[in-house]
Simulated assay, not measured.
Amino acid sequence: MNMEEIIKSIVRQILPLINKKILIFISGGKVNAESLISTLSDFELIDYNIVMSEAAASVIDKRLIEKLKGRIIDSQDKLNETIRSSEFILIPILTRNTLSKVALGIEDNLITIGIARAIMLSKEIIAVRDSYDSQNSINISEGFSSNLAYNSMLSNHEKILDSFGVKFIDSSEFRETIQDKFYKSSLQPFDKKKVDIPERYTESNKKENIARQNKLIENKKEERIIFNSSILTVKDINHTLEDGVIRLNKGTIITPLAKDYIYNNNLRVEFC
Score class of each variant (00 low, 15 high):
residue 88 F to D: 00
residue 98 T to G: 12
residue 73 I to S: 01
residue 97 N to Y: 13
residue 74 D to Q: 07
residue 40 L to Y: 12
residue 59 V to S: 04
residue 37 I to R: 11
residue 45 L to M: 14
residue 92 P to Y: 09
residue 91 I to T: 09
residue 38 S to Y: 11
residue 67 K to N: 02
residue 80 N to Y: 14
residue 44 E to S: 13
residue 64 L to M: 05
residue 54 E to G: 12
residue 63 R to Q: 06
residue 76 Q to T: 07
residue 38 S to C: 11
residue 66 E to F: 02
residue 44 E to R: 15
residue 59 V to M: 02
residue 88 F to R: 03
residue 69 K to L: 00
residue 59 V to T: 09
residue 90 L to R: 09
residue 36 L to R: 09
residue 88 F to P: 02
residue 66 E to H: 00
residue 87 E to V: 01
residue 74 D to G: 00
residue 85 S to L: 10
residue 94 L to C: 12
residue 72 I to Y: 04
residue 66 E to D: 00
residue 80 N to S: 10
residue 72 I to V: 01
residue 87 E to P: 01
residue 83 I to K: 02
residue 96 R to F: 11
residue 85 S to M: 11
residue 38 S to P: 11
residue 82 T to V: 09
residue 49 N to K: 13
residue 95 T to F: 14
residue 92 P to I: 00
residue 55 A to V: 13
residue 70 G to K: 04
residue 46 I to Y: 05
residue 88 F to I: 07
residue 78 K to V: 01
residue 82 T to G: 01
residue 94 L to A: 09
residue 57 A to N: 12
residue 87 E to N: 07
residue 73 I to F: 04
residue 84 R to S: 12
residue 95 T to A: 13
residue 63 R to K: 10
residue 81 E to Y: 12
residue 75 S to K: 04
residue 74 D to L: 02
residue 92 P to C: 04
residue 86 S to Q: 00
residue 93 I to R: 07
residue 82 T to D: 03
residue 57 A to S: 13
residue 70 G to P: 06
residue 79 L to A: 00
residue 77 D to S: 04
residue 86 S to C: 05
residue 48 Y to F: 15
residue 46 I to E: 08
residue 55 A to C: 13
residue 69 K to G: 07
residue 41 S to D: 05
residue 95 T to C: 13
residue 40 L to Q: 07
residue 75 S to Q: 00
residue 92 P to R: 06
residue 89 I to G: 07
residue 63 R to H: 02
residue 63 R to T: 03
residue 52 M to L: 15
residue 81 E to A: 08
residue 92 P to T: 06
residue 44 E to L: 11
residue 89 I to H: 10
residue 61 D to K: 04
residue 84 R to T: 12
residue 38 S to T: 14
residue 70 G to M: 03
residue 96 R to L: 13
residue 87 E to A: 01
residue 78 K to R: 08
residue 59 V to I: 12
residue 63 R to I: 03
residue 48 Y to C: 05
residue 94 L to P: 10
residue 84 R to D: 12
residue 73 I to A: 02
residue 61 D to G: 01
residue 84 R to V: 11
residue 41 S to Q: 09
residue 93 I to L: 15
residue 55 A to R: 13
residue 88 F to Q: 06
residue 47 D to Y: 10
residue 49 N to A: 14
residue 64 L to W: 03
residue 42 D to G: 14
residue 39 T to V: 14
residue 87 E to Y: 07
residue 62 K to S: 13
residue 72 I to A: 06
residue 66 E to A: 05
residue 83 I to N: 01
residue 78 K to F: 11
residue 95 T to N: 14
residue 91 I to Q: 04
residue 48 Y to Q: 01
residue 95 T to S: 15
